[in-house]
């Protein structure tokens, strides 16, 4: 798994790729929570996520809740089909703010 961050228009685009599983989700969590503590607007680029398990989803949930408390933007963008199926299983596709593309997420 890889986590890559870049700044675009004052927001942080966090691109996750590969398998976000038990082994890797703690680093995803730490990365996202650090950004949340800094109150940075975040767009998570999920185009290259091959697999995400429940602990990976939990990290996204925790960060999203923090963003909502802080009133900062937290958007899941360009979600790959396997990641979308996992979100749908727990009906989280209805809960997160989603965008079809990173660009759309930045404008949201």
């Amino acid at each position: 798994m890889k986590i890559e961050s870049r700044e675009i228009d004052g927001a942080v685009v966090v691109a996750l790729s590969g398998e976000v599983d038990l082994q890797h989700s703690p680093s995803v969590r730490k990365h996202l929570m650090d950004l949340m503590f800094e109150r940075r607007p975040v767009v998570v680029d999920m185009a290259l996520v091959d697999y995400i398990d429940s602990s990976g989803i939990a990290s996204l949930v925790e960060a999203y809740q923090m963003a909502r408390k802080n009133g900062t933007r937290f958007i899941l963008a360009a979600i790959s089909a396997p990641a979308m199926r996992v979100l749908q299983l727990a009906r989280l596709d209805k809960v997160f703010a989603l965008a079809d593309t990173v660009e759309a997420g930045l404008q949201a």
């Binding site: 038990l22 989700s25 703690p26 939990a58 949930v61 925790e62 299983l89």
Partner: peptide, 19 residues
């Protein structure tokens, strides 16, 4: 079996209850 943070464990547990 994991070293996951207790917050993560709580969320995963409740996710599974939702499912």
């Amino acid at each position: 079996h994991t070293n996951l943070d207790e917050t993560t464990i709580g969320i995963v547990t409740r996710l599974k209850l939702e499912v």
